[in-house]
């Protein structure tokens, strides 16, 4: 147990402490100047925007995919499950690169996009698409085992009692999966905000335009602006800590519900 605790302390505790000490090295004043910098604020805004679009997308998509996989038998079900897992097994940088190749100026689609004046790569849509791809499995992976375990009897009972498909979904299916769903959304959100690799490739690092928090941290760090880098990084760290707390709260609730 001692070994375990010291491992956690060294690998997770120390870096966590380091982020905040480095960020506050030159005092609170410098800290707030760093995070209220124009570009920093824009990075924060963009990160929230990307998460605000991609998380709901994956919420809807994740629920639909898990519903299909867990409650129905159909041809190509295994293929769908494999596709859901794909983002876990592909390196994020590669997935970013694929989107550049797909939508970039030199692709077939790219020419059409340029003609119609639609920009995806090196713009917000690219960031959103890359983030959706990377965070796609979180909700579905959380829900599929849960829904499979619950089976279809309660839904069948609802239909037999005269409920419509929609009523069955909202009154029976959703209440049964709500805690698992929230858990999946939290994980999905954490990843969406912290994603670096895929976003880095499609972003183009345009200051004040296509930089998310992780990308902004990298730029600051490469400019030897350590205090600012760590200050902005501390925002992400705080987000992670909040996520952990919420996650814990959800876990406690789920546990109570099972009793």
């Amino acid at each position: 147990m001692f070994l375990g605790l010291s491992f956690v302390a060294v690998v997770i505790g120390l870096p966590l402490a380091a982020v905040f000490t480095e960020a506050l090295r030159k005092g609170l004043g410098a800290y707030f100047t760093a995070i209220s910098d124009e570009y920093a604020l824009q990075a924060i805004k963009l990160t929230f925007l990307v998460a605000a679009i991609s998380v709901p997308c994956n919420l809807v998509f994740g629920v639909a995919a898990s519903w299909a996989v867990a409650k129905f038998e159909f041809l190509g079900k295994r293929l769908l499950v494999t596709f859901i897992d794909l983002p876990f097994s592909v390196a994020p940088v590669i997935s970013g690169l694929v989107y550049v190749l797909l939508f970039g100026a030199h692709s077939i689609l790219g020419e059409w996009l340029i003609e119609n004046d639609i920009q995806i790569i090196f713009a917000v849509p690219g960031l959103v698409i890359a983030t959706i791809f990377v965070t796609f499995p979180f909700v579905a992976r959380e829900l599929i085992p849960l829904m499979e375990e619950q089976g279809t009897e309660q839904e069948e009972a609802a239909l037999l009692l005269g409920a419509s498909g929609w009523q069955t979904f909202w009154k029976v299916t959703i209440p049964n999966i709500k805690w698992g769903l929230l858990y999946g959304v939290l994980l999905c959100n954490a990843r969406a905000m912290g994603e670096f690799g895929a976003v880095s490739v499609v972003s183009g690092h345009i200051k004040g335009s296509t930089n998310t928090i992780p990308l902004h941290v990298e730029i600051l760090y490469n400019d030897y602006n350590f205090v600012a880098a760590f200050a902005v990084a501390s925002i992400l760290t705080l987000l992670a800590l909040v996520t952990l707390l919420l996650k814990r709260a959800v876990e406690i609730r789920t546990h109570e519900n099972d009793k």
Partner: peptide
Amino acid sequence: VGFVFQHYALFKHMTVFENVAFGLRVR
């Protein structure tokens, strides 16, 4: 048709009252 399942299939997030009322409420 009224159907009774082997493992009851009650809606576990609803009270006994709401379970019985379900078929009337969804009309």
